[in-house]
């Protein structure tokens, strides 16, 4: 998953990014003003955006309105210092999916971001199940047929992304776009390495294949 943080206070942005990378294994991009935020959202298919309201150049509310006008469906969580009802209602009506008031709890921010990502992919449960495979996004554990499978961070990211969209064909480019921040092109060949490692670990002790490769199209996770 790839998340954008638009926050002008560099330390806060850095802390949130670190939390998302460490606790959710997300790829995180950080920008410090509204204009940069808007162009980043228009250029990249983020799985969620964390948007501060008080931003230089273009404030959060305007960013939100513009991306919704442009038809972007990216889930947006707004960080605001104001917690009065009117401003919260205005935020949600402008197209925000969720909000947190400063100072917030980092754990809560991570949980809400995960929930937004999940909903954005049409999933309700934090435990994603495909056949006898179970991916628990809350504590990032993977079980197949009640057997625990240990994955590397990148293998987990690939599996989590595929598991959010079971049955759908996911191109290599899409995987790259959602699993890496900024300079993903240079990693293009690595995806195959992760997928084959993942496939080997999932199939260990099981006869049924779960990850299928469709030539020139991409990958699909299904029973």
């Amino acid at each position: 998953m790839r998340v954008l943080i638009v926050e002008d206070e560099p330390r806060l942005a850095e802390n949130i990014a670190r939390g998302l990378r460490e606790a959710a294994a997300y790829a995180v991009d950080v920008v410090h003003d509204g204009e940069a935020g808007l162009s980043a959202i228009q250029a990249n298919p983020y799985d969620a955006v964390i948007l501060d309201l008080m931003l230089p150049k273009l404030d959060g509310m305007q960013v939100l309105q513009r991306i919704r006008q442009a038809g972007r469906r990216t889930p947006v969580l707004v960080l605001t210092a104001r917690d009065d009802k009117e401003s919260v209602i205005a935020l949600l009506n402008a197209g925000a999916d969720d909000y947190l008031t400063k100072p917030f709890d980092l754990g809560e921010l991570l949980a809400r971001t995960k929930a937004l990502v999940r909903r954005g992919k049409g999933q309700a449960s934090p435990i994603l199940a495909v056949d006898d495979l179970q991916v628990n996004t809350a504590d990032r554990t993977v079980y197949r047929n009640s057997r625990s499978i240990t994955l590397t961070a990148m293998e987990y990211r690939v599996l989590e992304y595929l598991a959010h969209r079971p049955g759908a064909v996911v191109s290599k480019k899409e995987l790259l776009e959602h699993l890496y921040d900024y300079n993903w092109e240079k990693f293009s060949n690595v995806i195959e390495v992760y997928v084959s490692g993942l496939r080997r670990k999932l199939n260990d002790g099981s006869s049924r294949k779960l990850i299928h490769t469709l030539r020139n199209q991409g990958y699909v996770l299904r029973a």
Binding site: N15, P103, L106, G107
Partner: peptide, 21 residues
């Protein structure tokens, strides 16, 4: 109060991310 929220949010998030693992 409004202005204090941001520095407090920074401090809190720094400490919480330190405790994350």
């Amino acid at each position: 109060a409004h202005e204090l929220k941001t520095p407090v949010a920074v401090l809190k998030s720094t400490l919480q991310s330190l405790l994350q693992r």
